[in-house]
Computed example of a mutant assay.
Amino acid sequence: METFLYPLAGGLLIGLTTAIYLLFTGKVVGISGILAQALFSKDRFLPLLFVIGLIVGGSAYGILVEPSQPFPEVRSPILLIISGLLVGYGTRLGSGCTSGHGVCGISRLSPRSLIATAIFMTTAIITVFITK
C-alpha cells in the first residue's frame, strides 16, 4: 500500500506547484525555461526561488525520508558538463523540457507537447529495454 503513496503525493505536489506558479507568474512550469529566467531575466526572483526550492526540497527529502539510500557515485565533471550542455541544447531544440511538455503541455492539450512527451516516453522505454 505504501509503495504508491510517495509517487501520489509527489504528483499532487507537482500539480499544485505548477498551478501556483501559473497563478503568480502567468507562465507555465518548465525547468529549462525557469532556469533561463533565473539566470538571464531582469525579473528573476520567483524563478530563482523556484530553482532553490527544487534543490532544497529534493535534498530535504533525501535526508529526511530516504537517509539509508547511498549517495550516487561521483561522476566525471567533464562528462557532467558535456551532458548538461547536450540536455540544454535538446531543450532549446525541442522548445521545452520534459517537465514543461509533460506536466503543463499535456494539461493544455498542446499538440506539440503531446508529440514531444510521446517521443520522450518511447525513448525512455527503449533505453530501459536496451540497458536492462
Rank of each mutant, 00 (worst) to 15 (best):
I20A: 11
D43L: 13
I31M: 03
R44H: 09
L5K: 05
I63P: 13
S76H: 06
F129T: 13
S59L: 13
I115W: 07
P70Y: 05
P77R: 02
T123K: 09
L5S: 08
G100H: 02
S99T: 03
R92A: 10
I115C: 04
L16I: 14
A36K: 12
G84W: 04
G100E: 02
I106Q: 03
L109I: 15
S107L: 08
P77N: 04
L13K: 05
L80C: 09
L49S: 08
I82Y: 07
M1N: 06
T131L: 12
T131K: 12
F45I: 07
A19H: 15
E66R: 10
G100D: 01
I125M: 07
P77A: 01
F24L: 10
P77M: 03
P77D: 03
L79N: 13
F120T: 01
V103Q: 00
F45S: 10
S95E: 14
I52H: 08
R112M: 12
A36C: 11
I34G: 00
E66S: 09
S41N: 06
I106L: 02
V65K: 10
M121W: 14
Y61A: 05
G102N: 00
F4C: 06
G100P: 00
Y89Q: 10
F24W: 11
I34W: 00
T131N: 12
A19G: 14
R108V: 06
G102I: 00
L35P: 15
S83L: 05
L86T: 07
P72W: 01
G62W: 11
P111G: 03
I52S: 07
L109A: 15
I78E: 14
T122A: 09
L80N: 12
Q37L: 11
H101G: 01
G57A: 05
V128G: 11
S76V: 02
Y89L: 09
E73T: 09
L8V: 06
S41L: 03
G33C: 03
R75A: 11
G10M: 04
F71L: 13
T127Y: 11
K42N: 12
T98S: 12
I130L: 08
L35W: 09
A36W: 09
Y61V: 07
L79T: 09
V29L: 06
I14G: 05
F50D: 01
G90Y: 05
T127F: 13
S95L: 11
I119E: 07
T18G: 08
A9M: 13
S83W: 09
A19L: 15
M1I: 07
G57M: 00
T25G: 01
V28H: 15
G62P: 12
L35Q: 11
I55S: 08
S68A: 13
T122E: 01
L39M: 01
T98C: 09
S113H: 04
L39T: 01
K27Q: 07
A36L: 10
G53R: 09
P77V: 02
